[in-house]
Simulated assay, not measured.
Amino acid sequence: MNKINSMMAVALLAFTFTACKKDDKEPEIIVPVSDGSTMTLNGIAASEAGSSAANSVYIDLSADKQSTALRSSWTLGFYTGSDFKVVLNAHNGASAAVVNKTDLNAVTSADLVQANLVVGLGTAAEAEFLKVDDPRQNNATVKTVINTISATDSENKVYLINPAGGSHTAVFSPDNVFKVRIIRKGTGYTLQYAKLSATTFTSLDITKDTKFNYSFVSLADNKVVSVEPEKANWDIVWTWSLYYGGTAPSQYLYGFSDLVFTNTLGGATSAEVLVATKSYADFSASDLTNITFSSKSNLIGENWRVTTGTGIKMDRFYLIKDAAGNVYKLKFVSMGVGSDGGTRGKPVIEYKLVKKA
């Protein structure tokens, strides 16, 4: 074989090998977008007997998927966006109060003022909204008890936290109270924390994983914990939470279940449609031209139900636009109130794809 023929043979062999490698490549699996379904949400947790809302339930409409997290499984949420915000667990009734000190070890039981941490549910007083992340805002990061974490360490004060507030009780045990101080560490956070009576503290570094809205920490378990799915993988959450009732200026703080929040931090938006305008069955993609989607996380909130009579408000349904741009119409079928035939803590939703992204 001459030199030219040898070179051609080598080239052919290399081409054949490369072609075989390409043919052997695993095909990309594309999960189809759901056309819609009916789903029973599991708000009941076996470990929390007697509670019909022990879980927060996160729903991904395009994947026909729900995931649950115990509401009591976390204490603080560290925002992973460009800002340095820390939220309290409103889903477990947490409350907090600032102490004008920066040395955690210098904070003792003498710094605890019970009234600053007791959440006066049903009390029409603006002061109650200063103890919790204000639920009247568009999302939880807007008006938080814990100030935005400063790049200047000396500006970051100590906070006292009652992880499970939301109580009418005027007296609680100081043994349940944590003291915390949070500073920045590079692009993330350092959390310093201890029980109120402790004379030493623990430090925990928290990084920002931008696939999620928050990094969550359980003070009781001394660790970062998994709560929400990745922000691209859920659209709405059903839960119990500190919330509010009444109309301004006589609004009051309260806590109850069957609240639904939209994942606006993750890019989802929502809208309410009254059936007097268009029925759920008849609503189609052509009707979207008349819809304005909202970035308010509490647009659905409690607006879909009452706790007496029929329970579910049958005069409305909702539109959810996920972060990818898929639009679903969604209605509530049962919630275990009145004669709807449902189970409290296991509400049923029905949804249908209106427009694919």
Results as ranks from 00 to 15, higher is better:
residue 1 M to P: 09
residue 3 K to P: 02
residue 11 A to E: 01
residue 16 T to S: 11
residue 17 F to Y: 10
residue 24 D to H: 06
residue 27 P to C: 11
residue 34 S to Y: 06
residue 34 S to I: 06
residue 38 T to S: 00
residue 40 T to I: 11
residue 49 A to V: 13
residue 51 S to G: 09
residue 54 A to V: 04
residue 56 S to P: 04
residue 58 Y to P: 01
residue 58 Y to A: 01
residue 60 D to V: 07
residue 62 S to Q: 03
residue 65 K to T: 08
residue 66 Q to R: 04
residue 70 L to V: 12
residue 70 L to T: 12
residue 81 G to I: 03
residue 87 V to L: 04
residue 88 L to M: 09
residue 92 N to C: 04
residue 95 S to M: 02
residue 102 T to I: 11
residue 104 L to R: 07
residue 110 A to V: 05
residue 115 A to F: 03
residue 119 V to W: 00
residue 119 V to I: 13
residue 121 L to Y: 14
residue 122 G to C: 14
residue 131 K to Y: 06
residue 132 V to H: 01
residue 144 T to H: 07
residue 145 V to N: 07
residue 149 I to R: 10
residue 150 S to V: 11
residue 152 T to V: 15
residue 155 E to M: 04
residue 158 V to I: 14
residue 167 S to M: 08
residue 171 V to Q: 11
residue 178 F to E: 00
residue 195 K to Q: 05
residue 211 K to Y: 07
residue 218 S to F: 02
residue 235 D to S: 13
residue 248 A to P: 01
residue 249 P to C: 00
residue 256 F to G: 13
residue 269 T to N: 06
residue 279 S to V: 03
residue 286 S to H: 12
residue 296 K to W: 01
residue 302 E to D: 14
residue 308 T to H: 08
residue 313 K to Y: 07
residue 313 K to C: 05
residue 314 M to E: 13
residue 315 D to E: 12
residue 316 R to M: 12
residue 335 M to H: 08
residue 338 G to E: 05
residue 339 S to N: 15
residue 348 V to C: 04
residue 353 L to N: 10
